[in-house]
């Protein structure tokens, strides 16, 4: 996936400016930066979620398989590029099974067998199957926070996206649940392209192969995670990762 000169606004306020970036296939890309730097806005531009906010505006291109997603219907773009949010947001009135099946049902899959298979696979991929296999008809909100977040990941995976975007997926979770999600991210990259936004530098260092550092709506530096953390080229990056601000 290739991002080409993306800028985004909230009303008159410019949130990110002229960002160009590549995300490698089947790898994990991290985006770090202090809060308010525009990293969430950037990731929301990658599956056209940014424009669902009133008065929000985007310019630039996001190429997936060589085609600009802004030339395609937003609905099909979001099916190919899934997203997981900061706070777990399962549908509380649906069972665990229905939560995972929701996306498939939207796309017209009705056969119980196909749904069963997809739910099983997605829950397994999300490392949740063993914990919920006996309670698939329980409400999605009956799970713990970490389980809810993995349920949301399973729900996003069920429609077989090519890219999975994660917007600070662990910020509402405790350390143990966080560790589980990080393991999961590691496993998922063989099947998916992952982009993860985090304000936790250790997390980026642990899971991401490449990392981008953003500050005040601009992309400051991008590179292999190890190099970025060990030998940053920009002074700003260095002062951020050494904890001098942020």
């Amino acid at each position: 996936m290739h991002v080409d000169k993306i800028s985004a606004w909230y009303g008159p306020k410019l949130a990110i400016q002229d960002i160009s970036l590549d995300f490698e296939e089947h790898s994990v890309s991290g985006i770090i930066g202090p809060s308010g730097c525009g990293k969430s806005t950037l990731i929301r531009c990658l599956n056209r979620m940014h424009e669902t906010i009133p008065k929000a505006k985007v310019e630039g291109q996001v190429l997936l398989d060589g085609q600009d997603i802004y030339d395609q219907p937003a609905v099909s773009v979001r099916r190919r590029i899934g997203m997981v949010f900061q706070k777990p947001n399962p549908f509380p009135t649906m069972s665990i099974y229905d939560n995972v099946a929701a996306g498939l049902r939207l796309n017209g899959v009705r056969e119980r067998k196909k749904l069963d298979v997809a739910v099983l696979e997605s829950l397994k991929q999300a490392a949740l199957w063993d914990e919920v296999k006996d309670s698939l008809d329980k409400s999605g909100s009956s799970l713990s926070g970490g389980q809810q977040q993995r349920l949301c990941i399973a729900r996003a995976l069920a429609v077989r996206p090519e890219v999975l975007l994660m917007d600070e997926p662990c910020s509402a979770l405790d350390p143990i649940a966080t560790a589980k999600i990080e393991d999961l991210i590691f496993d998922l990259k063989k099947d998916y392209t992952l982009v993860i936004v985090t304000h936790n530098m250790q997390q980026a260092a642990r899971v991401a192969e490449t990392t981008a550092f953003m500050y005040l709506g601009k992309l400051i530096e991008v590179g292999r995670t190890r190099e970025l953390f060990e030998r940053p080229r920009e002074a700003l990056t260095e002062s951020y990762i050494t904890g001098r601000f942020g």
Binding site: P73, V75, L106, N107, G108
Partner: peptide
């Protein structure tokens, strides 16, 4: 088929 279905949904 997918295209038709999306059109219907729209």
């Amino acid at each position: 088929f997918l295209f038709d279905r999306d059109t219907r949904r729209r």
